[in-house]
Amino acid sequence: MEKHKCDKCDRPATYHSVEIVNGKKIEKHLCEYHAAEEGLTFKVAHKPINELLTNFVKMHSQDQSSGPNELVCDHCGLTYAEFQERSLLGCPSCYQAFARPLDVLLARTHEGSTEHHGKIPSQSGFGEQHQQQLMRMRKRLDEAITAEDYELAAHLRDEIGKISGTAEGGETL
């Protein structure tokens, strides 16, 4: 198809129509601007694509109840906002607590990956639940010692020792 200029100016025509009126063929070729002026099309204020995307992402993240900044790790109390400030997570459980926003971040830093490939500990002694339980108990142990509740501390130490299969170094505390 040959290229037409706008009937009313020199800009390239983006609107084309052919009408037959009383047996006569009437062609119209209009640019974006003049077509809109005649009410044949409506003009869209162009938004840059990244702005659209940002808005979309914002809307999307507001969807998720309260947004990632409000997320808190149950085990160590770190908030996602604190993590963003310092780029350091507080404990292994943070990976679960912040999984959703973290996966986006991980994909960005690790060439799109969000899952481990590679070495697995041969003695993967403790499952993840086990690891979390240990961390909870050690936290309680620390609190017990701070509160000088030595009876509870001794009990917790025994329990931790049983679970971890190691004699928890009582003398080191």
């Binding site: 990976y95 590679g118 500990p121």
Partner: peptide, 25 residues
């Protein structure tokens, strides 16, 4: 070391590190 100490490890993320830029291997 692994025979002597249990390392924080998850099936999904691998070896868990304080900074997510080191996680995995």
């Amino acid at each position: 070391l692994e025979k002597r100490l249990d390392f924080a490890f998850s099936q999904k993320y691998g070896y868990l590190t304080a900074c997510p830029t080191n996680v995995g291997t």
